[in-house]
Amino acid sequence: MMKRDECFRILKRHVTDEVVVATYSSAVDWLALGERTLNYFSVGAMGLDSSHALGLALGRPDKRIICLQGDGSLLMNLGSLVTIAAAAPKNLVHLVVQNRTYEANGGHPIPNTGTDFAAMARSAGYAHAHEFSELANFEQQAAHVLKQEGPVLATLHVEPSGPLTYDYPKLYDAARRAAIKAELS
């Protein structure tokens, strides 16, 4: 089983000018790896990360959009898998961080911890779907996954992490949102 922050450190080595959409625990771990203008944290309602990512992917087809979405969050917006598959943005990479818990809300389990998100994405019509449980395998395949023609979904099976500090005012700072908007529009 992998750890989320380890996966993100691998991911960071491959990220250059991509927009990275993240929320809650994923946003905390991603931000810990460094500030960058193209981090999109203005989510505002749990579950909408994948929908924000679709809007970005449609609005800037010339840029790669990477969505880091927790399993609990995606469960709140499962229909977005079908919407994304139908819209078929070639530049969208959807990484689902499956720790099987609502980590930011007390660590309670999601309703079915064995949910197969890659299978759901495949049946919804994503161009590619992957699953990773071993860090070495993810390390070997990350560059390939990030470059595939989308929409691509990859489930990262990770352990629940230790206690995190959720500095929401910092994550969702208006100046941060203004900076990325200026960069993208």
Binding site: Y40, A45, S51, L54, G55, L56, L58, N77, R177, I180
Partner: peptide
């Protein structure tokens, strides 16, 4: 509610 997220992403672009 998907509309709201998608519209936001588009607005940023």
């Amino acid at each position: 509610d998907e509309c709201i997220g998608i519209a936001s992403g588009l607005y940023y672009c």
